[in-house]
Amino acid sequence: MKQGNLRQIVSEKIAGKSLDHHQLAALLKHQPPKPAAKRFTLKQLPALLATLLICLLVAQSLLTTKLSIEEKIGSEVAKNHIKLKPLEIKTSQFEQLQHYFTELDFTPVLSRHINLNRQALIGGRYCSIQGITAAQLRLKDTTTGQLQSLYQTHYDKNVFSGIAGLTEGQQPVTVHVKGLTVDIWVEKGLLFALTKN
């Protein structure tokens, strides 16, 4: 007969006691099946619609926040251009415009991408791009007669440096927003955006 310390012998004795197959089956049979998925009822419809609405809002919010900086600028200037707000100064003389914009922390300049022989100056007004005060110059294409808006503001690296390929002297980055073509470029330390139909 096996002999050993109390703990070992008692443990082995207890471990030797087991339910047989019939007993196990009988006990397992008592257990309820996994609960079936609940049926959808009309009472749950408002909750479902509310959930869908929240999901849509969250999705829209996520999509909005994923816009790149050039898309944001393009969207902002295109929106401004479409509104065609009244000009604060009407002039075809660029020097007069320069004298008008006294509240800016930069001096408006003529860009090498603007040809005043083909794009006649009409006037200007104050505006902002991404929260930074800007000058909006309105131009008229002398060939087609279509209006264009030229925005210029101080090039703030913290705000605008995320635009791929946008460095001083490089060719404009083009985005298409609301049916308009928006060219964005950096020149003479300023950020320019030109909206064209």
């Binding site: 007969m1 703990r7 012998i9 004795k13």
Partner: peptide, 16 residues
């Protein structure tokens, strides 16, 4: 001390 107790297998049930 309880672990030091030595027991025979056939004594377990009587012991319990």
């Amino acid at each position: 001390e309880l672990e030091d107790v030595i027991i025979n297998e056939d004594m377990v049930e009587t012991m319990l």
